[in-house]
């Protein structure tokens, strides 16, 4: 289950609604057809306020990642070490999603394919989606 903050901006809601259906979706402008992330009140490319949530296939690639070994928030102490990555998607250009990756850090490389997993079993954080190396899904 996702653990979205109880009060989120209305323009954020589409992401969490898609997660409930085990899918990823990002805001895409109906006027200029470009994605943006994070969500804004109007399209930052053309200022249109007609924005739709577009579902994507899900498979992405690692833009960068880090293995976190220090608990900046004490609540994370018993989950150390854990991986946080920036994931890019071929069908959502301009979007980079911050996500946990369940994998051996030694096996990761920039550009490698990762797929989303919506099962609580592999979850590291409480975002509702964790990525795994493609082929391990």
């Amino acid at each position: 289950m996702s653990d979205a903050p109880s009060t989120i901006a209305p323009e954020f809601a589409g992401f969490f609604a898609a997660l409930q259906e085990r899918a990823l979706a990002f805001p895409c402008c109906d006027t200029c057809a470009r994605f943006h992330w994070y969500p804004m009140k109007a399209c930052p490319h053309c200022r249109s306020s007609v924005i739709s949530w577009r579902r994507i296939a899900g498979t992405g690639s690692l833009y960068s990642w880090t293995t976190v070994r220090h608990a900046f928030d004490p609540a994370w102490r018993d989950r150390l070490p854990y991986i946080v990555a920036l994931v890019e998607f071929p069908d959502a250009p301009g979007v980079r999603l911050i996500a946990n990756v369940a994998a051996d850090p030694e096996s990761l490389a920039i550009g490698m394919a990762v797929t989303p997993c919506f099962d609580d079993g592999v979850a590291i954080g409480k975002s509702g989606v964790t990525f795994v190396p493609a082929g391990n899904a």
Binding site: D73, K126, G128
Partner: peptide, 14 residues
């Protein structure tokens, strides 16, 4: 707000 909604839940917090 977006950091709170999308980043804190994955432990991207330092």
């Amino acid at each position: 707000p977006a950091k709170l909604a999308f980043e804190k839940p994955v432990g991207f917090n330092g």
